[in-house]
Design a protein around this nucleic acid. Sequence first.
DNA 1: CGAGCGATTGAACGCTCTCAAAGTGAGTGG
DNA 2: CCACTCACTTTGAGAGCGTTCAATCGCTCG
Lengths: 220, 220
Amino acid sequence: MRSLTVCAALDPEELRRLADILQTVRVEANQTLFSEGDGADALYNVTAGTVKLYKLLPDGRRQITGFLVTGDFLGLAVNESYAYTAETVTTATLCRFPRKKIDALMDEFPKMQRRLFSMASNELAAAQDQMLLLGRKTAKEKICSFLLMLSQRAARRGHKENPVYVPMSRADIADYLGLTTETVSRTFTQLKTAGVISLQEGNKVLISDMDAIYDMAEGC
Amino acid sequence: MRSLTVCAALDPEELRRLADILQTVRVEANQTLFSEGDGADALYNVTAGTVKLYKLLPDGRRQITGFLVTGDFLGLAVNESYAYTAETVTTATLCRFPRKKIDALMDEFPKMQRRLFSMASNELAAAQDQMLLLGRKTAKEKICSFLLMLSQRAARRGHKENPVYVPMSRADIADYLGLTTETVSRTFTQLKTAGVISLQEGNKVLISDMDAIYDMAEGC
DNA sequence: CGAGCGATTGAACGCTCTCAAAGTGAGTGG
DNA sequence: CCACTCACTTTGAGAGCGTTCAATCGCTCG
């Protein structure tokens, strides 16, 4: 569901109008798309690569609120400003929709608005899952949930679910799960030693014991 | 913004149609409105009282994902099922909108859909703030952020921002902030001892040093 | 081959949790 | 009016998980 694009379920007429207003942008890895507090002048749709969203505390502590892949959108804003910073994890391509034009289009095509609403609802559900993870899960449960999420997301997008491609750094994973890089690294080592995963070339993680990962993700 | 109702910004015709389909329900404190996994057959709007939403892990660990007050809506669903349990904190009254009818109405009145989308966007922003809190803040920062949130929410709804009415139990606060009841209690005591808050009759917290609370909420 | 960055490993600390007990207050019934 | 219960809160002591600080490893790139 997360993986469907905004453009799905539109008829040709609507798609053509959408194509008229979008710009396609390609961004190298580790580049900032926009920063927390910037004027929110556009909505984006990821068409390739991975993007991370994060918020900072004054002293530099960071919380990554999501990793976005193909089909995910970003740029929803409150008070005309972005509430988070968006940065590429890998080289990425995105569709950029100027906000004014998309607003006008939403008025014209309720179907599109409905689609966007449905995506926001899904994001909200994902956010609640993440709160449960951050507030109540142990380090091992967090890592297992994370791997499972990546695996399921890949499957939904038609890729093979195992091994899982993990393009983000230990520091990014830590800031997503509310841990430190050391704890992330140690937990990976534990899972490796326990024989439930193994690390492969090219930032891939092979899940050898999917059932064990499932159980450990929820503390069973 | 959270405090505006779905019904705001509708014209009389739309309001009348909305009134036709809503049922008003009154629910005592500590009652379950619906449970995680239940078929999502209705959308609710809180008109009085406080409601909490939570998710559980198999072993009983609980994460409260939000406390809802007048104007907040609940019942957004994915896959036709509620993704969380909803329970009253205080006696509450709610407007109940059967899902089928609200869906039909949304198609008819794009303005309403837009309103709902905007509310979901705000919820999403709040969820991201909460992730930052859960993942990266200390116990003291969490408690201060919590009190500040309640204060600001009261102010937005036209109530006085200080003292803050805190109707939920220590256990609920703990499950909202990813702490234990003991830590919540100890942190309140610390803040009391430091002279920045004092507890009053009727579950109210007087913030004596608002600046200190602001600073402590973000670790300054 | 050396520099530099990220990942891993080690050791010790500390924040929060766990377990336990005492305190508080509202409600009940004698 | 008072004892009693029960649920919630507060406080205490000790333990543990994850952090902090530090060193080493391994890979990539110039």
